[in-house]
């Protein structure tokens, strides 16, 4: 084996060691970061509630079509912590089912945007200045040339307002932002010595992208994705709030706000549940994201 390739292998090994060391330190900081822990706890609590919504909610039947006119507009008390709505449904129950819906929505959107956006961003960033860069990034530019909410709203409107189309709209709205982030990170580290070393050793471009570059940007990428998720939830709820997303009686938090706003301010407590629900959900993602950022930015 020649000396040069020994050097190159050394560079790559060194990089691998540093990676392991960085991970260890990141975990240490995560354990010590109050922000990250609070975020994780709040996030898990909401997730557990959402998954076991049938068991944790007091009136699981109230989630969608249920009417009890005797119990209409009941202010909050011990039986109905957040009161009841115009059809006599328990609002707390509906809010928890709303969490479930939000998690399903963000889960589906993430599982589309993350892989697609990562691949596109990696490829465009790795071939910076060549045709894959222009093809992907100019296409992304088209989508970011109007405010995200307007884009999502108009897609929903053209397709038909319902929850599936809301997810499609949110996905179409989010991917260019996510791709741009992966792109900028990739193009920032594509000239690092270990990438050069791998290239000089004849490692294929695809495996450089996924084995050398991707692990190095994963931390910041996941952080940003978590923070973005909060934003996606916000936009999703805004779409429903404006009547272009989920339709009643779906227990979507945004839909609930617009449903209950009709009775505002007379039965003002009705909107507390869903608005608070949206806020707590967004907060969970933000805390988690900020915690992750604190952990990864400590370098």
């Amino acid at each position: 084996m020649s000396n040069t390739s020994k050097d190159l292998i050394f560079v790559l090994k060194k990089e691998k060691e540093m990676k392991r060391e960085r991970l260890k330190r990141a975990w240490f900081r995560f354990k010590r970061s109050k922000l990250a822990l609070t975020g994780l706890i709040l996030f898990s609590a909401l997730l557990v509630m959402a998954v076991f919504a049938e068991s944790v909610t007091p009136y699981p039947k109230h989630a969608e079509t249920y009417v009890n006119f005797k119990m209409r507009f009941h202010p909050p008390d011990l039986n109905h912590l957040l009161g009841t709505d115009h059809l006599g449904r328990d609002i707390l129950t509906r809010v928890i089912f709303g969490f479930r819906l939000a998690f399903i929505m963000i889960g589906i959107v993430i599982s589309i945007v993350l892989p697609v956006g990562t691949v596109l961003g990696l490829v465009a960033g790795y071939y910076k200045g060549r045709w894959p860069d222009y093809a992907v990034m100019r296409f992304a530019d088209v989508f970011v040339s109007i405010p995200p909410l307007i884009l999502a709203l108009s897609i929903c409107a053209i397709l038909e307002p319902n929850i599936v189309n809301a997810m499609i709209a949110v996905t179409l709205m989010w991917w260019p932002w996510y791709t741009r982030m992966v792109y900028s990170m990739t193009s920032a580290i594509r000239d690092e010595p270990y990438v050069w070393a791998a290239r000089a050793l004849g490692v294929r471009d695809v495996s450089i992208m996924f084995k050398e570059i991707l692990p190095n940007i994963l931390g910041p990428v996941l952080t940003k994705a978590t923070l973005d998720a909060a934003w996606v939830i916000l936009i999703g709820s805004a779409i429903s709030f404006l009547g272009l997303g989920a339709q009643p009686p779906t227990p979507d938090l945004g839909t609930m706000v617009s449903e209950y706003m009709v009775y505002f301010p007379r039965y003002w407590w009705m909107i507390i549940g869903p608005t608070l629900g949206i806020a707590v959900l967004i907060m969970a993602f933000n805390l988690l994201g900020d915690g992750l950022r604190e952990v990864f930015a400590g370098e």
Binding site: A230, L234, A238, F241, T275, I278, I282, M283, N286
Partner: peptide
Amino acid sequence: GICVPAFV
């Protein structure tokens, strides 16, 4: 501020 949307 971050967690509360404008309509809320």
